[in-house]
Structure formats: C-alpha cells, structure tokens
Nucleic acid binder design. Structure first.
Lengths: 289, 289
DNA sequence: CCTCTTATGTGCATATTTGCACATTATGAT
DNA sequence: ATCATAATGTGCAAATATGCACATAAGAGG
C-alpha cells in the first residue's frame, strides 16, 4: 500500500466530498477520485460510500481513517522535532494570511524577503484560520484580530481601522436611508461577521462572500455595503466610506507563530523581518483616520 | 511530505545500502537515491550519511525511521483487520517459503493454483522466518520444522528425511575419515544449524551459506559436507549421501497461517489446495528411504 | 417538476516519477 | 597499487500520475 493514499482517505473523511478534499490537498478532484478507486481495488474492499450527496466511510474506511489520524499525528510530531540544515536560512517557510493582504500590501514585502533569501522555499497560503498553525501547516500566520489564540506566540504590530464601505454610486443613492442598506454576508473574519450581524436586520444575506477580495468586487458592483478594513476600502477608488471609523471597529494586526518554532532560525528571521517591514509601511495599513 | 517516502527511509535503514533497499522495495536503486535526495531537500535536513560503504541514519533520519516503524506497524495492523470483498478469490495472496522448495517442487503447484484463480494476485516471498506471518507480510508460510510456532495455525502435511551430503568426489575422498570432514556453516534452518553443531568440532566455519541453494552449490564445488533434506540432496546428481537418513533427522513439512486469516476465504482456499497438492506429490519430498 | 449549482467520472494532454543503461565512484581482495 | 566487484549518480526513454476540460449525475431550492 502507498502510505500516502491514507492522506486521501483522511481528507475525504474530513471534508465529506471529493471536491472539498481535493481543495484541501491542493490537487484535482479527479485525482482524489482515482486515488480512492485505486486504493479500493488494491485492498479489495470499499472505503467510502455515498450517502445523500456526501461521502461517509465504510467500516474498513473508518479503520483506515483512524490509522491515518495516528500516522498524521506521528508525521506532525516528527516534523516538529527535525532540526534543519546548519544553514538557518535554508528550507521551507510557510506563511498564511488573508488574500486581501497577501496579494496587495504584503506581497512586495514577501518578494523582498524571498529575494534576500533565495535558498528559502517560500510558501504563501491563503487562510483565515489559525488552525493552520496548530496543524503545523504554516510556520507564520498574519492575522487581523482582537483576540489572537493563546496557544501561539503573537506579536501585535499595529492597529487597523475598519468601517462600512460601498461603491460611490451606492453610497450616494442610500446615504440617508440606513434602513434600506443591503448588507453583504461575510464569513472572512469573525469580527466583520459579528459587526454585520449587529448592523443588519436580516440574517440570511442574498449575497455572501467568504473572502475580502470577493467582498470588494461585490461592493464595486453596487451590490450593497459591508465592513472592510480601511486600508482595503480606501485603496479602491471605486469605493467610499458609508461612515467614519469608530474605535470599536479597530482590529489588531498580529504576527503569530507556533511555540515550537521559536528555535527555528528561519521562522524567527522572517518574523522579525515582516514585523519591521509592516511598521515601516504603517501608513498603508492604518488608513486615513 | 509524501508519507510513502518514509518507506524508503525505513528500507535504507534496514538494508544499509540503497541497492539492497531498492531490492526490498522492488524498485530501482536510482529511484531510492532520488527519493532520499528529494526528501532531504524538502525537509531541509540530512537523513542518511555514508560510513564505510554503508549508509547510517543521521539524528533526523533516526527520528524519521522511528516514525516510519510506528507507521508501518499501524499499516500492518489495519491491513490485517480489513475484510475484503465478497468475492473470496479476489485480491492479494502472499506465500512465503524457502527458495529451495519454492523454485523447484512447489513452483508447478503455485503456477497451477494461479492459473486456476487469475484474479488472485499471487506473491511468493523467499524467507525462512515465521516472523513474516507475525508481521502479516505473508498469509501462508510453508516450512520445514519440528517445532512450529504456537502462535499460528499449522498443518503437518508430511515428514521429510534429511542426511549429510557432499559431492561424489568429496564423499569418495573422505568416506573413512569422519574427523577430517569440512562442515559448511549453515543458518538456513535452525535444525540443520543445530545438527551441524553436533556433528562438527569447529564453531567457526570457513565457508558459510544462509540458503539451501547456496549450500547445494557449495557442496557441488567439493567444499565439504552439510545436512540437506533428501528431496534436495537426492535431486542433484552431483551430490551423494555421506550416510543414510536417521529418524532423528526427520523434519515436518508444515503449512502455516495466521489465526486472523482463518476467515479469509482466499487464504483457506490456497491452504487446502497446497496441502492436497503436496500430498499428491509426496514422493518428491520424502526421498528414498 | 424544473432549473441551477455542485459534485463526480472520464478522455486526453501534460507533468512527474520511475526504469534502464551506462558512467563514475567506492570498496575489498590480492 | 591494481583489479574486480558492488554501489551510486545521471541522462534519456518509458510508464504512471495528475491536470484540465467537458460530460454526466446528484442535490437543493423554488
């Protein structure tokens, strides 16, 4: 048996569909489908079965999943104990953050760091969840939050303002009609989600986005309003503020790392670098207040 | 990390060379070399280092090996608990036995069974150890023994005679000079090893073989004498008996299987088949007594 | 029941891995 | 030191795995 096939079983188990599992594993859904089929044939037993549009594991599949969980735990554990090459700035470095920061303000900083250290294999992963750190899928997480997890080492770098944005036309049209505003549904950030819930009467949004860049695009289309950090909203000439920022809508920009990484020279080097770089470009983040 | 890479690490650890590891894994040595190199690059640390012509593991490599051992154990365990498809004669069947039987008398029987059941993936593994069963690397073991392990289900099929053999020339030269006989060292079978120890004054043999076919080849070269089962010794026209078989040199031919396999239709089917086939060809095994 | 969205299956092209053959290096025996 | 053998490294071809695009199937909502 190819031991790596158990990763596939585990992913399908966790995600419930092959498409979602494929996404998590960063492969095509067809690859997942074929790998599962091949494994079933090799083992001579079924692993998954379809129940109401989702896959659940058979008895054999569950046994394999349990085995895969223990193996995954072993891999995570040993991976954490390996000390890399004597050259501290050699090997992989995985950073996770939200797309709206990664693909805009942060990318020039990432690029500069990568050019400084060509022997570091730099990985940027779009995620809004700190489970990436806990699962050791990432070395550093850059997050907007007011309540960073206590299980990681966090550095509060600066404070970011947020307020409500819409397209210029939309804001002009609805400026006086607060009750008629159409709120976009968001799930990109717990705080934005909660503030949206406070501000909006409806709980079932007609238009939903799970990523800030999607939200920006939707706002530009005049589909409604939504909370955005000012450094994102102000940067887009097609968007306007619906109201001015309030202190209670501030968010902290945190650089997080797993405690076990504190002896990892490469991770520390990047952490120090990115904190300094963000501070130097502070004006890009805090917006006009 | 590709979890299957740990198989490579484990194999290199066990075998000491990439060539030997490749043999065990049934791949090319170049594949092993590349996989190790790629893994070292991916992890950013060395896994193996060369010491006097053999590979030993680095600290990181040992950690990976230990992890791989635990994973292997998990895989073996779960594999043993999976119940295969309803089609009982479908899937893999792994048989282990000594080379001298497998490549001669037993092969026609194996071949006939395989042709009867083309959908069974038949695997013959040369081994003289019942740990193959315990580790679930094999479903059936065919052994020469007078003390089969109690942890497996064994069927004594017939009794095989053994005695001392040498080349015709060697036997002629040393017939009267028992004290001058040169005994080959053997480790292929515990009984042969023990009997050799009894019969020979020396404990450090100048020429040693760990496989009966090697022993046969060495005897043909006139290198000395050794215990062999009669069905092997008598089958080679270049060899002669040094003395006649004695009952205390009889060995039982056992067909063994793991208790957990007794509900495995495929294993049972083969077990019944091979027992009958051996009985039908009894004369090939017992030799002239 | 219909429509739209999401998920899966499959043929073919592409990418990656492995096998093979050969060159190079290392080791052991003389 | 030399020679033979075994092990490793590498270029290229072959085999295999995966991606991609599209067709089909399934599920959810109206």
């Amino acid at each position: 048996m190819n031991w790596d096939d158990l990763k596939i079983v585990l992913a399908v188990s966790r995600c419930g569909t092959m498409s979602a599992a494929a996404q998590q594993l960063k492969v095509q859904h067809s690859t997942v489908s074929r790998r599962i089929k091949a494994l079933e044939k090799q083992l001579g037993t079924n692993i998954i079965r379809r129940m109401q549009g989702r896959y659940e594991l058979t008895k054999a599949g569950n046994k394999l999943k349990d085995t895969a969980l223990r193996i995954e735990s072993e891999i995570i554990s040993v991976d954490g104990t390996l000390s890399r090459k004597d050259d501290p700035l050699f090997g992989p470095l995985r950073v996770t953050t939200i797309n709206s920061m990664a693909s805009t303000i942060l990318m020039p900083m990432f690029s500069a760091f990568s050019k400084l250290h060509p022997q570091i294999n730099f990985h940027i992963m779009v995620s809004n969840s700190t489970t990436s750190l806990a699962n050791r899928e990432a070395d550093i997480a850059i997050r907007l939050s007011n309540k960073p997890p206590e299980t990681v080492i966090g550095k509060h770098v600066l404070t970011v303002s947020s307020t409500v944005y819409g397209s210029s036309d939309y804001i002009n049209k609805y400026r006086g009609n607060k009750d008629d505003l159409n709120w976009l549904g968001v799930s990109c950030c717990g705080f934005h989600k909660a503030w949206t819930k406070e501000s909006s009467d409806v709980h079932n949004h007609q238009f939903n986005c799970d990523d800030a860049l999607l939200t920006v695009a939707a706002l530009r289309e005049g589909l409604g309003v939504s909370y955005l950090p000012c450094f994102i909203g102000d940067a887009d000439p097609a968007l306007r503020r619906y109201c001015e920022p309030e202190k209670r809508f501030d968010l902290g920009l945190w650089v997080l790392m797993h405690p076990e990484s504190k002896s990892n020279i490469r991770v520390l080097a990047f952490r120090d670098y990115i904190i300094d770089a963000i501070k130097e470009q502070k004006q890009l983040f805090v917006g006009i207040v």
